[in-house]
Structures are given as C-alpha cells and as structure tokens.
C-alpha cells in the first residue's frame, strides 16, 4: 500500500511540476492543486497505512477498543485540505479578476507591477 501511495504522490508531483512550468497561469493553478493533493497524501501516508477501525470511542468507554487507525494524520490532512481549499478558491478568484482586468493569463505578459525598463542609450 505504501509503495502504491508513494507512486501516486510521485506521479502527482511530476504532473504538478509539468503544469506549473507552463506560462498560462490557469495551468500553474491546476499544478498547484495537484501539488497540494500530493502534500496531503504525504501526510496521510506518514501516519502508516494499516487496516483498522475508525478511531471512535464507543459509548461509555474511555478509549477506543481494538485496533484503530491513527487519527492524528487524518486530522492534520483534514485541516490541510480545508486550508488548501480556502487558499486555492481565493487564488482562483484572484486569477479570474486578474484575467478580467489585465486581459491575459500569460505570466510573461503580466508586467504591470514590473514594467520593462526603457533603456536610455
């Protein structure tokens, strides 16, 4: 299971890097989404992949009974997914607004903040 997950993470990162090298900002954003999923999977896989019940405490007990899955990476991944979701949604909104105002998605043509210097002689 770990080997498979590692392969998936590797593929995701490779695809993400490929997309992020593109000039189009939308492709960069898609690459970012893949990379964020790769990071989340990394955390998930770090918690060790073992078959086990959900870490729930039954009624009237103080601790879960039997073999349960490690709950901490799940909590970490959930937090990371939520934060990633918020950030990526914000970035999408920003990209949309930038497209509306700058009329381009080509990051080479986004030179408003750093205009090309006019070389004087």
């Amino acid at each position: 299971m770990e080997a498979l997950t590692a392969l998936i993470i590797g593929t995701l990162v490779a695809a993400a890097v490929y997309l992020m090298l593109a000039r189009n900002f939308m492709r960069f954003l898609f690459g970012l989404i893949l990379l964020s999923n790769a990071a989340n999977l990394t955390i998930f896989a770090s918690g060790r992949m073992t078959p086990g019940a959900p870490a729930l405490v039954p009624y009237g007990e103080d601790a879960p009974i039997g073999v349960v899955g490690n709950a901490l990476p799940q909590a970490l991944v959930l937090t990371a997914i939520v934060i990633g979701f918020g950030l990526l949604a914000f970035t999408l909104a920003l990209a949309f607004e930038a497209y509306r105002r700058l009329r381009t998605m080509d990051s080479d043509k986004m030179r408003y903040a750093e205009p090309k210097e006019d070389r004087k002689g």
């Binding site: 900002f25 990379l35 955390i43 990371a80 920003l94 930038a98 105002r101 408003y112």
Partner: peptide, 25 residues
C-alpha cells in the same frame, strides 16, 4: 499593478507552503 503583483506573490507563497507541508508530513 496590485492584481499583477498579487498573482506572483500568491503563486510563489503557495508553492513554499506546500513544500513546508510535505516536510511536516
């Protein structure tokens, strides 16, 4: 200018965040 700057700031900072997050994992 702000939107243009925002795109670059957001993009590179998100990449760094994800590297950091993978490191945590």
């Amino acid at each position: 200018e702000q939107l243009d700057a925002g795109i670059k700031y957001v993009a590179l900072n998100l990449v760094s965040t994800l590297v950091f997050l993978s490191g945590i994992g």
